[in-house]
């Protein structure tokens, strides 16, 4: 009979345990989220991240070792993005009748996201390099990293700010939109996808199919729009 530490060190060096723990942590997060009636404050992604962060910290495991196992889940982000075509296609007829509101919501949401973030951070004295990483925070991670690099910001910091924005968006969307008495699922979804990319879209899909479809549209189109808007607004800061 070998002792626990030896078995742990054997398992912790392979990918299996980290893949398993990633799924289990998410299931715990999802179960808690359900238990709280899908209250936006009990965000399943945030719960899973905190749990896994604790495990890595307690077991002194470096992130690259964890990612060996978690990469199989991470890889599915690409296929999942492609699969977002499904709700778009299913809502196609609705969508064609709401081109103008979509354009208005997208342009307003995208502009406000970049201008307000840069305005606040600039006023509070952050340096240009940090502002460059903050500008694309509302877009999906791969696009944000590309934009931040073009502007002279750190790609790692950009990724961190993107994730924080996504989790914030998923948590604040429901209370903010309820307070404004916006009951149109299309408006709710589009605004969340535009401001909080994939994590916001995940939340919208959880709440309502049509909101999810419009969130996917907001996320996809804002990735393109921000690539043009962020450098423009960043340049105005002088």
């Amino acid at each position: 009979m070998r002792d626990f530490a030896e078995i742990w060190s054997y398992l912790a060096s392979g990918p299996l345990i980290w893949l398993t723990l990633t799924l289990v942590a998410y299931l715990v997060g999802d179960t808690l989220s359900q238990a709280f009636g899908r209250n936006p404050a009990a965000n399943p992604v945030l719960i899973a991240i905190i749990l896994l962060g604790l495990v890595l910290w307690l077991s002194d495991t470096p992130y690259p070792v964890y990612f060996e196992g978690a990469q199989f889940v991470h890889f599915l982000l690409g296929p999942a993005t492609v699969a977002l075509a499904i709700p778009l296609w299913q809502q196609g007829r609705q969508l064609r009748r709401s081109m103008l509101p979509v354009a208005a919501g997208l342009l307003t949401g995208s502009l406000v996201a970049v201008v307000s973030a840069l305005g606040i951070a600039h006023a509070l004295g952050l340096d240009r390099e940090t502002l460059a990483a903050l500008a694309p925070k509302s877009t999906t991670a791969p696009v944000a990293i590309g934009i931040a690099q073009t502007l002279g910001g750190s790609p790692t910091l950009a990724a961190v700010l993107v994730l924080l924005t996504g989790i914030t968006g998923a948590m604040v969307a429901t209370p903010v939109l309820n307070a404004l008495r916006i009951r149109d699922w299309r408006a709710r979804g589009l605004a969340v996808g535009t401001a909080a990319h994939g994590i916001g879209t995940a939340r919208a899909l959880q709440v309502h199919t049509r909101a999810g479809a419009y969130a996917a549209i907001g996320m996809g189109l804002n990735a393109i729009l921000t690539a043009f808007l962020a450098p423009l607004i960043f340049g105005l800061l002088g």
Binding site: L56, V73, A141, L163
Partner: peptide
């Protein structure tokens, strides 16, 4: 789809 953001989030 929310599950897929967990690995990157842990990196954060």
């Amino acid at each position: 789809i929310a599950l897929l953001f967990v690995p990157a989030g842990v990196g954060v």
